[in-house]
Design a protein around this nucleic acid. Structure first.
Lengths: 201, 201
DNA sequence: GTCTATACACCGATAGAC
DNA sequence: GTCTATCGGTGTATAGAC
């Protein structure tokens, strides 16, 4: 429910827009100063407000971070949904596409990555509502892998470990480079072999 | 040089012992309250001191964290050195042993894991001195994999991604469980297949 | 809704007595 | 080497005027 609803009246729409502005400012702050540098004063400054004014729109700093978490997973899920609708028939090609998409999504925004994977943000615990998109995304991944011929339960867990490992290494040890990005095709082939996918022609 | 040197005189040895106590207290504090909860006041309380007294032993809070980083990597490297001396001849068995060892080391102490892999500790950047053990460890890993028949350069990067991915998933999504621990043998087999290691008998 | 002013709790670090 | 006292700063959050 972070998107604007055209049926709302003017003041409600204005409120939504302001919440959006605050969220954007929070992302920019986190990108610049890291999660430990994300403070209400800095966010407010970027929006053009004073810190206490933020409380008219979010109940607390935690509520802001919570909204960021939900929005990030929703964003990934939207991307995966798009991908799902245009998946190639060849299982290996499809797998590679999914892998590259996720890898690119995470590595392009390291700060977002640390929030989504629950590392680095002090005492943050997502609310049930903001957790929902990440669950939806895992379901979608399960479906996607099944369509690629991965039916075993272990398939999903090994997939998340493999892709997550590649992205984390890329971000931590070669930020901005492609040392692990270059390994993605090979990693996917290795994974496909393990689950007995037919070789492409 | 964090180990005690028997040739030092009494006061120097006492100093070393106190530094050790402080480091231990810092670990315990980080385990209990997380890295954001690691404060000099809490560490001092655990040691039985007042916060300012810590400055007689460490120049700053950053110096303490730095020492923890170096000690953690030294600890892992010691374990890997032990492993190296008793490695089985069969390449696949050796690989599995290395994987299990690293996986167990990291997952047994999640807080240590986040420090070693440079996620979650505010603005920490390791000093050259404390960074050295981690470099040594990577060299050892390279040597270890070579002995197992992994000669390609990509071998090390894919290995760290795979093992790191498994450990991170285990810690983040099933702490205390074995959902990804159970996948380690399969992941190692998949990896060994990719690099053409002969199958065990 | 936004502002100013402020409460309250902490933090890392320093000065100087003992 | 450890203490007390304190500095200068941070943070989140609230009260109340406009």
């Amino acid at each position: 429910m972070t998107l604007e609803d055209p049926k709302l009246d003017w003041t409600a729409r204005r409120r939504q827009a302001t919440r959006r502005e605050i969220l954007d400012a929070a992302w920019e702050t986190a990108r610049t100063d890291g999660w430990e540098g994300l403070t209400l004063r800095r966010v407010a400054e970027r929006v053009g407000m004073r810190a206490p004014s933020l409380y008219s729109h979010y109940a607390s700093k935690a509520a802001i971070v919570d909204a960021m978490f939900g929005a990030a997973w929703q964003e990934l899920d939207d991307e995966m949904a798009q991908l799902e609708s245009e998946l190639p028939d060849d299982p290996r090609a499809a797998l590679l596409l999914v892998a590259r998409s996720a890898f690119g999504f995470f590595t392009s925004e390291p700060v977002r990555h640390t929030l989504m994977n629950l590392i680095a943000v002090p005492g943050f615990v997502p609310s049930e509502e903001s957790y929902a998109p990440s669950v939806r995304n895992l379901d979608r991944l399960r479906r996607l892998l099944t369509r690629c011929g991965i039916t075993e339960a272990a398939g999903v867990d090994l997939w998340t470990a493999l892709i997550g490992g590649l992205t984390s290494q890329q971000i931590a040890n070669d930020p901005g480079g492609d040392r692990w990005a270059r390994l993605v095709p090979r990693a996917v082939a290795m994974y496909a072999d393990q689950f007995g996918l037919p070789r492409s022609v």
